[in-house]
Design a protein around this nucleic acid. Structure first.
Lengths: 341, 341
DNA sequence: GAGGCAATTGTTAGCGCTAACATCGCCCGT
DNA sequence: ACGGGCGATGTTAGCGCTAACAATTGCCTC
């Protein structure tokens, strides 16, 4: 095993390719990095040698000398939820082929696990971090830490201390609310999401704004769930007894599903007696009973914008002016109808 | 900028830590790698210096010399689907803290994009690859390629050419079918998944086996969907007209959702006239109308086993005997009832 | 036809770390 | 009191690659 570096057994090295092609290893490197001054014949010869040997660059050696890893880290809470899963998907698609994406799922949303995840990524040498962490506390925690690498928040509302990309929760919720108001409902109840989630807060705010703008009174009872169908189900049961409830805006589609189920268990017809609007437009929403009217989010676009934003941060350190949020459009299906007379 | 390597400006180096702690860089390395022969005081001093400087090892340099990257690659088709998303989640959780996980989502399931993803991972230097690719063609493609690194299939049925970890689709489907038969239904229809998906094939096989075992006749019409609620909806409409249809086993919960919707549109009561069983037990399944009886898969366990299997492959190259599949249990809810008399 | 310049290729020196070997001091038994 | 051995630390040599510089060639200009 002399230092002449023969790759008889193990993986071939650049020097092996060089020897086979009859050039220096540096020329091989030039070919691989698309340097301009390599003659076509040489390039062809090197390429042939590479193919012949099945040569593959050692990524570690490469990053060691270039100082770049071409890896982006994505931290997410629960990639099983449709929203985060879709964002992740969008991000990965957008990052390719320049970057590959490493993931870290948080077991919980406390500051500690968040920092742990960031640490892991930093140790791994990722070039940038995206956080799909729509919880206020988590986002606040992010604000505190300063890594040397760029970090952005995805879908974390507009109040994030980090540069962020977000959906227009306000506008979407307002649109949903207005739709119900336009159908003649006196007011609209809101089955809100968890208090400490930014998206939930913004949707709530959008709902409240729309109510005020229309001069409708805001229901006193605050109904709060946790995104799950179960929580929507519980809210549904609380609401079922009240005859004044004719319209409900839900913080997401799962909650709407649970709510509709509870309502129907209690003999309340949807949309006959109560109209329901969801949020997200998960793929199944159109097949609920009744098909759910909901607010659609474009997660793919969100992912693309997130990657673009992060890449921008590589170039400049200036605080980016917050890009306008991505529109969330109303999709009218069968769960909403004119208010009963 | 001499080679003495002072880190006044940029990130601190190991040698900076060493200088501050008054030891050699190798001792710092020993501390970081938990080598036994370091005195407690020295260790404490080094640790203090590390904290003081905010030192972080360069992962590239480390991998270059150790030959290890501690990265696992996961290739998946559509991480937006509940199944793949859950597996991914389980894998990431199980891989930590020894490995970090890089992902690649395939835009399509052809051989080319699959190979491309593998190439990318190989270039990146991952130590092992997991494929969540439950399509026959994809799995077949995998069989062809030989990478130097271990590669396993996750949730790809038992007929995979690769070592694989899988859910007991056969048993699960059989259990669901038997449940319906036990309720007095003469036979059970099957809304199958896509023909070229291994899980779909196995579920179909399990259904058929259970039917045969019970001496029930197999319906002639083959109903095939694509996992989506929409396809279930279409199948539901095809089935709604037939009075002999009293029980349907669906290939997944989404299809069950669509099917129930179609049935109810056509005035068929579930479970009064038709009993329906799903597969997966997605979180919303319990809140469908009616709550869905379904077959639960333990994706977390699947992820853990997948990681364990891959780690085993690092140790030995021997073909692993296929581990028995993970049990899929029936969860009885409200969408199934005794056959109408 | 000599000087010069550009295009192409080769040579050298690290990137920051760990493994192997070398060294030092200290405790032990006798 | 003295040598053997071991625990703690330092020194050296790369890991495989790219960037900077050096060298060679051919071609053009005056």
């Amino acid at each position: 095993m002399a230092s002449t570096g023969g790759g008889q057994a193990g993986r071939p090295l650049m020097v092996d390719v060089a020897r086979l092609a009859g050039v220096s290893h540096q020329t091989v490197s030039r070919v691989l990095n698309d340097h301009p001054n390599v003659s076509p014949e040489t390039r062809a010869g090197v390429l042939a040698a590479i193919r012949h040997l099945g040569y593959r660059r050692n990524a570690a050696a490469r990053s060691l000398v270039t100082g770049r890893t071409n890896v982006l880290g994505v931290i997410s809470f629960d990639t099983t939820l449709y929203g985060p899963a879709s964002m992740l998907y969008g991000i990965e698609r957008a990052a390719r082929p320049a970057y590959s994406v490493a993931i870290a799922s948080l077991p919980a949303f406390d500051r500690r696990s968040l920092l742990e995840a960031v640490e892991r990524f930093l140790d791994q040498g990722v070039e940038g971090i995206m956080v799909i962490a729509p919880e206020t506390s988590a986002v606040a925690a992010l604000g505190g830490l300063d890594s040397d690498i760029p970090m952005i928040a995805v879908g974390c509302g507009t109040h994030s201390p980090l540069a962020s990309v977000t959906i227009d929760n306000l506008g979407g919720a307002a649109r949903g609310t207005r739709h119900l108001l336009d159908l003649g409902h006196r007011t609209v109840y809101h089955a809100a999401g968890p208090e400490n989630w930014l998206d939930a807060q913004e949707r709530e705010e959008g709902w409240r704004t729309a109510l005020r703008a229309a001069g409708a009174s805001e229901p006193e009872t605050m109904l709060r769930g946790d995104w799950s169908a179960r929580s929507g189900y519980e809210i549904g049961h609380r609401l079922a007894g009240r005859p004044d409830v004719t319209a409900v805006l839900c913080a997401n589609d799962q909650m709407a599903l649970g709510l509709v189920r509870a309502l129907s268990e209690r003999g309340k017809a949807v949309p006959g007696e109560v109209s329901v609007v969801g949020f997200d437009d998960i793929p199944e929403a159109g097949f609920f009973l009744p098909p759910l009217t909901t607010v659609r989010q474009d997660f793919g676009e969100l992912g693309r914008r997130a990657v673009r934003l992060l890449l921008d941060r590589f170039a400049t350190d200036e605080p980016v002016e917050p890009a306008f949020p991505i529109a969330a459009d109303l999709v009218v299906r069968g769960s909403t109808a004119r208010a009963p007379a």
